[in-house]
């Protein structure tokens, strides 16, 4: 899959993963990496950015075996943004589909 394409949607994908349930950084990476190969190092700045924009919040959760992990939880603003993004994505998908199925109009 083209990295350029991935780059454009990664922020939305990360946010939707957090919206699913509270997750920690490595978990998010693995979740996404199962579907599309991404570089771990691109995830962290995105998480940082989302936190800064208050689309998600962080908290520490103790784990039984190791040190506490930093969990990400979607905020109200994040949920609203998610709805917005999904709507945009559907529109975008449709438009792109229309444009790339050029054979129809030939």
């Amino acid at each position: 899959m083209s990295t350029q394409l991935k780059k454009g949607v990664l922020e939305m994908v990360v946010l939707s993963k957090i919206a699913e349930k509270d997750r920690y950084g490595y978990d998010i990476y693995q979740e996404i990496n199962n579907f599309m190969a991404i570089s771990e190092s691109t995830i962290y700045p995105i998480l940082r950015k989302l936190t800064k924009e208050r689309l998600c919040e962080t908290y520490l959760r103790e784990s039984s075996e190791g040190p506490p992990r930093k969990y990400f939880k979607v905020s109200r603003m994040g949920e609203e943004r998610m709805i917005e993004l999904k709507r945009d994505w559907k529109k975008f998908e449709r438009v792109v589909n229309v444009m790339i199925r050029s054979d129809r109009y030939e």
């Binding site: 920690y24 950084g25 490595y26 771990e40 962290y44 700045p45 998480l47 940082r48 075996e65 190791g66 040190p67 992990r69 930093k70």
Partner: peptide, 20 residues
Amino acid sequence: EERKELLDFYEERFHSGKIY
């Protein structure tokens, strides 16, 4: 501050890998 946040991720990453 920014640097610390990013390094924390990797620190945590090491822990996760080691322990889990």
